[in-house]
Design a protein around this nucleic acid. Structure first.
Length: 291
DNA sequence: ATCTGTCCCTGGACGC
DNA sequence: TGCGTCCAGGGACAGA
């Protein structure tokens, strides 16, 4: 699922394909709550514009246009932003897959889950935004306009300090894992990296956030950043639907310590990884290593 | 102010 | 093989 590393990998790899090109065609699926800006208005605002810059904020991407307007994107749970020439059979339907001859050049064609397709005046590869579960979002921001979702974001996880986390958790009685998932506290962490970071820091996910000492907060932020950076390096985590814009899978799932490893031995002590529900989210930890 | 539960959505896994 | 049921989860929202 796209969290900070997957969104950052997406940003880095789609940037060369998305920047400095003039949008000449816009195709969308029919209106749904996926579209914070109605499809017709999206088309009207995007057509003919040049793309200038692609920025990440937490799990959001912001595509700046030459007229100062910005396209805000969120990948939700199953969002994929990729090139038409992305080479991944996972993007093909079952029938396309079975009729594929060996060595054939892959060319993705928009399906019912491809909610936004951008074509360019240079006739180069199109860019697609696909999202099966439609938890993703797209919105057009006027010049200078923000969105409450962006305004609410806390400090970016890669820029946070232990001291900041310490201060932000002083009056928090909720479990530390639930607090980590709140984008208004630290932006970018989702279920996988919360579990992984807590494991590396040796902190039980159920621990009351306010009970963490300054030292433990420093350790936790360090562990989180280590995990996030390591995942970016390995191309993100393709445990469910994530693929990079070029179609490649991330490799971080092979390095997971606890997430999705219920009943397997802890990589540190050999005890069994346990799973529990915390705020309706599955949570994985080692009862022996995490206190 | 903070916390908890519910809901949105679809495909895949699983049991019968 | 085929159908029904459950589960995954980011984040908005409502109500405590």
């Amino acid at each position: 699922m796209p969290e900070l590393p997957e969104v950052e990998v997406t940003r880095r790899r789609i940037e060369p394909l998305l920047i400095d090109r003039r949008i000449s065609s816009v195709r969308t699926t029919r209106d749904s709550y996926f579209f914070l800006t109605r499809p017709a208005a999206l088309k009207r605002n995007l057509l003919g514009r040049y793309t200038v810059e692609l920025e990440r904020r937490g799990k959001y991407l912001l595509l700046e246009l030459d007229d100062g307007k910005r396209l805000m994107l969120h990948l939700g749970m199953t969002g994929q932003l990729f090139s038409q020439h992305a080479t991944s059979v996972r993007l093909l339907s079952a029938s396309q897959r079975s009729s594929l001859s060996p060595g054939e050049q892959l060319c993705f064609k928009p399906d019912q889950h491809t909610h936004l397709s951008l074509g360019f005046a240079d006739r180069g590869p199109k860019v697609f935004f696909r999202d099966v579960r439609k938890f993703g979002k797209v919105r057009l921001l006027e010049r200078g306009q923000s969105d409450p979702r962006l305004d609410r974001l806390g400090v970016d996880a890669l820029e946070a300090s232990g001291e900041q986390l310490f201060r932000l958790t002083r009056r928090r009685k909720a479990a530390i894992k639930n607090v980590l998932l709140q984008q208004s506290v630290i932006a970018g962490i989702g279920n996988i990296y919360a579990d992984e970071g807590l494991f590396l820091a040796g902190i039980r996910p159920t621990r009351r956030a306010s009970s963490l000492t300054r030292r433990r907060c420093e350790k936790l932020v360090g562990s989180l950043q280590r995990v996030l950076l390591r995942s970016i390096e390995s191309g993100g985590c393709s445990i469910s639907d994530f693929i990079a814009p070029d179609g490649s899978d991330g490799l971080y799932q092979d390095e997971r310590h606890v997430y999705g490893r219920t009943g397997e031995p802890c990589p540190r002590c050999g005890g069994l990884i346990r799973r529990l529900l915390l705020g309706q989210r599955s949570t994985h930890f080692c009862p022996r290593c995490q206190k």
